[in-house]
C-alpha cells in the first residue's frame, strides 16, 4: 500500500516537474517563465520529501523559491522587458533536437542495461544511528565536506563583493 502511494507520488511530482520546466523554457513572457519555474521547484521539493530529505526540501523552497526566484521577478519587473513575439523555430533545430533525444534515450538504455545507473531508489536515506535528518546533514557537512562547504562560502562572498564593486563603480 505504502509503496503504491510512494510510486504514484513520484510519478505525479516527476511529471509535474518535467512539464513545468518545459513550459518554463518555452514561455515568451519572462514572468510566466518564472512562475512555471516556481512550480518546478515545488515538485522537486516534493520529490525530496519522498526521499526522506525533508531538510533539503525545506531549503529548496526557502532558498530557490523564496529568495532567488523572488529576486528574478524583481529584476524582471523593474526592467519590464518587451515580449519579442513568437520566435520561429528553424527546421534544423527541430531535426537536431529529435536526433539528440534519440541518442540520449539510447545512452540511458545502454547504461541501464549495464547496471551503472539504476532507477531511483525510493526507500530513503541511511541515517547514522541516533541522529535526526538535520543533525546528520550538519554532521556530514561540517566534517566530511568541510572543505567544499568553505570553498562555496568564499565563492559566494567573492560574488557579493564583486556585485558591490560593479554597482559602486562611479
Amino acid at each position: 500500500m505504502n509503496e503504491i502511494f510512494m510510486n504514484v507520488g513520484f510519478w505525479v511530482l516527476g511529471i509535474t516537474a518535467v512539464v513545468a520546466s518545459l513550459f518554463m523554457v518555452t514561455r515568451e513572457n519572462p514572468v510566466h517563465s518564472a512562475l512555471w519555474m516556481l512550480l518546478t521547484f515545488f515538485a522537486v521539493a516534493g520529490i525530496f520529501i519522498q526521499l526522506d530529505a525533508e531538510y533539503i526540501a525545506a531549503i529548496q523552497v526557502m532558498v530557490y523559491a523564496g529568495a532567488i526566484l523572488v529576486l528574478y521577478m524583481f529584476v524582471v519587473m523593474l526592467l519590464n522587458p518587451k515580449s519579442t513575439g513568437f520566435i520561429k523555430v528553424p527546421a534544423k533545430v527541430i531535426l537536431g533536437s529529435v536526433v539528440a533525444l534519440v541518442l540520449f534515450l539510447q545512452f540511458v538504455m545502454t547504461l541501464m542495461g549495464t547496471g551503472v545507473i539504476k532507477s531511483a531508489q525510493m526507500s530513503g536515506m541511511n541515517l547514522p544511528e541516533g541522529l535526526s535528518n538535520v543533525k546528520a546533514f550538519g554532521a556530514v557537512m561540517f566534517t566530511q565536506y568541510i572543505v567544499p562547504f568553505e570553498v562555496a562560502s568564499i565563492l559566494l562572498l567573492v560574488a557579493m563583493i564583486g556585485a558591490i564593486v560593479i554597482a559602486k563603480k562611479d
Binding site: 531538510y55 525545506a58 531549503i59 523552497v61 526557502m62 523559491a65 523564496g66 529568495a67 523572488v70
Partner: peptide, 8 residues
C-alpha cells in the same frame, strides 16, 4: 523551516 519556507 516549513513555516519559514511558506512565509517566504
Amino acid at each position: 523551516l516549513y513555516v519559514l519556507a511558506l512565509s517566504s
